[in-house]
Design a protein around this nucleic acid. Structure first.
Length: 414
RNA sequence: CGGGAGAUGUCAGAGUGGUCGAAUGUGCCGGUCUUGAAAACCGGUGAGGGUAAUACCUCCGGGGGUUCGAAUCCCCCUCUCCCGGCCA
């Protein structure tokens, strides 16, 4: 959630920032009005409560002294009755405020480039030269057919469209990649965790998926539980509603989980192959950092993800997302896009974001800064998306006959 | 899933209608003592809102109720522990 006090005191600046993300000023004006009316309602209610409290104290005193309480009782009853509508108003004001506030995206950093969509993202650098082929490289789903690696039909039979089965060497490659990623992350100081793949609504709200993006989640029937769309949710929320000590920061975490996404808005995109599935595996990095240090943690995470791709010999580019392409919770995001010769384009394989204090405010993650409690910064990034790495290996390591070489660093894992 | 017990500050744990945001111990921070450390002793130390700062308001698992007044009484829910059932 954004800082409402900041919005109130610096309205022009705040609304200019959010314009980068396409939030209309009218929405923010509405939010500001709701915030003001909540404060007013609370002020009225609290003074009435104060009066009620002090009269109640008197009540006890009168009784002890054997005084007549009938007049006091009449006053206290009247005040109590008068409080009912005020209380209702305050409750409504709060509900109305949070309904709007929780749907406002994070402020982008000042450094974030202007732009409407991915067309306006800014390429920072390329790593590794794409290999030149003396034959026409195939797409991964064609290669899958030749090697019998992916069973799309039976995946659909088991669940529905956009579910697939990996077979034999492909399945072992997947397992090898997960281990390789976890080992690389651990070497950089990320502690490994194995977490629940189902989280409750409070946690989903903490990281920003709820309430606005409930349609993208698989919900467990009759339970307050959801399949996680990313390990960012459990890893970040491990510290939900906690106060950390400054010396334990930064907390660097990594974990492998499957990710479940309805992707309600993606009909028709990447329908062929395993680029976009309802279930995919991912190894995630999450960091909880001191607000003054989150920048360097962010750089570490970007470097780590890029180093993993380099170790695998996969050409990629580093792209800074523009305001319009930035996710809901992110203040700044770097995407790593891997080269897919079959598709003849770069495709996202990792997304690394600093959410600043946006998730921390929602999830109430703080640390002791001397005597005061301050919000931490939370960061997350893939290292890496496993399914898309398989696609990248297939397309980059293919031979003319359609067979696929296994990258050197993975051989000891298979 | 059935039976029983419970949920209070970092943790342990007292508190059964007003004097309780809450004893005591522990942890943590600061100090005295010490060459230094430990021990001992002294002081400080929950969270959120509100304010220029006070005042003030809210929070004793969550929600509702009784009462002038609820950590304390009543109802519902969740979770934890023990016993049994089932089970990787």
């Amino acid at each position: 959630m954004i800082d409402l006090k900041y919005l109130q005191n610096n309205f022009e600046e705040a609304s200019a920032k959010l314009q980068k993300k396409g939030v209309e000023t009218a929405t923010l004006e509405k939010l500001q009005i709701l915030f003001t009316s909540l404060k007013e309602a609370n002020a009225t209610l609290e003074s009435m409560k104060a009066e009620q409290n002090s009269m109640s104290k008197l009540f006890g005193q009168y009784k002890r002294e054997g005084k007549d309480i009938s007049e006091l009782k009449a006053k206290v009853d009247a005040n109590k009755e008068a409080m009912v509508p005020v209380q209702e108003k305050a409750r409504e004001a709060e509900e109305a405020l949070y309904a709007v506030a929780l749907a406002i995206p994070n402020f982008p950093d000042d450094s974030v480039p202007e732009g409407a969509d991915e067309e306006d993202n800014v390429e920072q650098r390329r790593v590794l030269e794409p290999r030149s082929f003396d034959f026409k490289p195939k797409e991964h789903w064609e290669l899958s057919e030749i090697n019998g690696w992916i069973d799309f039909e039976r995946g659909v039979k088991l669940a529905k469209s956009r579910f697939a089965i990996l077979k034999g060497e492909a399945s072992r490659l997947e397992r090898a990649l997960i281990n390789f990623f976890l080992d690389m992350n651990r070497e950089k100081g990320f502690e490994e965790y194995s977490v629940p793949f189902i989280n409750n609504a409070t946690m989903l709200q903490g990281t920003g998926q709820l309430p606005k993006f409930g349609d993208d989640l698989f919900k467990i029937e009759d339970e307050d539980l959801y399949l996680i769309p990313t390990a960012e949710v459990p890893l970040t929320n491990m510290y939900n509603d906690e106060i950390l000590s400054e010396k334990e920061l930064p907390l660097l975490m990594t974990g492998y989980t499957p990710c479940f996404r309805k992707e309600a808005g993606s009909a028709g995109r990447d329908t062929r192959g395993i680029i976009r599935q309802h279930q995919f595996n991912k190894v995630e990095m999450v960091a909880i950092a001191h607000p003054d240090k989150s920048e360097e943690v962010f750089d570490l995470m970007v470097k780590n993800a890029s180093d993993i791709l380099t170790a695998l010999g996969l050409p990629h580019r580093v792209v800074e997302l523009c305001g319009g392409d930035l996710g809901f919770s992110a203040a700044t995001t770097i995407d790593l896009e891997v080269w897919l010769p079959g598709q003849n384009q770069y495709r996202e394989i990792s997304s690394i974001s600093n959410t600043r204090d946006f998730q921390a405010r929602r999830a109430k993650i703080r640390f002791k800064d001397g005597k005061k409690n301050r919000l931490v910064h939370t960061l997350n990034g893939s290292a890496l998306a496993v399914g898309r790495t398989i696609v990248a290996i297939m397309e980059n390591y293919q031979n003319e006959d359609g067979t696929i070489e296994i990258p050197e660093v993975l051989k000891k894992y298979m």
